[in-house]
Amino acid sequence: MTNFSLDSSPSVVLELTLRLKIRDVMTTQLITAEKKDSLRHIQQLMKVNRITGVPIVEGKRLVGLISVDDIIQALDGGFIEEACEGRMSRQLIVLEDDMPLSLGISYFEKYHFGRFPVLNKDSELVGIVSSRDILTGLLVEMNKEMEQLEEKLSPQKEVGTTIYSREFSLHKFDFEHAGTASGTIKMELKEKGLDPKTLRRVAVASYEMEMNLIVHSLGGTLKVTHMPRQTVLEARDVGPGIEDLEKALTEGWSTANDWIRSLGFGAGMGLPNIKRVSDDFHIESEVGKGTLVRSVIRHPELGGEV
């Protein structure tokens, strides 16, 4: 288990742990079970989802927790087929979603559990937080801080000034509206006076992102942020995540089915295309969680090669 120590952390991190809430870092996509479920079933849940603890719930109420240790004991003691009700931990240490992150970290130091269930004010289970979630949350936040710092230090301050920003919600297999987000982005950036060549790159990237969200994801958002020297596109979805990023970035590699191909998509050029038109390209993906694709396109006519 990861050990945190607040005593030796730099003050920036310390400040972050006070400012961030548990809800900012917790996992909200919960894998839960019910009291009548067998320990075998829970073992399978852990295996499939690669997790080490499963909250036991009645509706939204948390009634217990089965950890991987409980499963090991069940296998050892030969009661793996039993319902979890008799074996689950009932005396649970929980966190509340609006507690500061610093308190969560101190719990990890104090109790040595791998995870803590998170309840809201109405005592409903709303999330679970592991040491990994905390680390990820802190890193994401530190990244933001760094970016803000860089912006402040940069002599070309206007890079950070947003002229136009918009977010579109996209749904799985919603071919009826496919392309309307990119169409809107293209039209509106044209009105903002973006030169045709750059506009085309932005349009291609946003269209591929939009189609990816519709064809491959369980749904997500496409966000465009237009600044004087660059346009940033971000596609964020809620799953299923990409198993092999290297393959997904290979031209011609596709997981699309015949139906999608019959609509003219699934050529295996989506991500490579986005990368091709981007000055900066970033992708991160976790199976079961989701994917984030970010494309930065600079505006050369405005001296965008910063």
Binding site: F175, R261, G264, G266, A267, M269, N273, R276
Partner: peptide, 30 residues
Amino acid sequence: MMSDVLVVEKDNLLLVTSLTTEQVVRTADI
């Protein structure tokens, strides 16, 4: 394949296709 069209970086372009969906027009616009 509309993604293959998006790779093309030519001006004064005509898109020839046997697809009939609105994505064809959308791609042409992009």
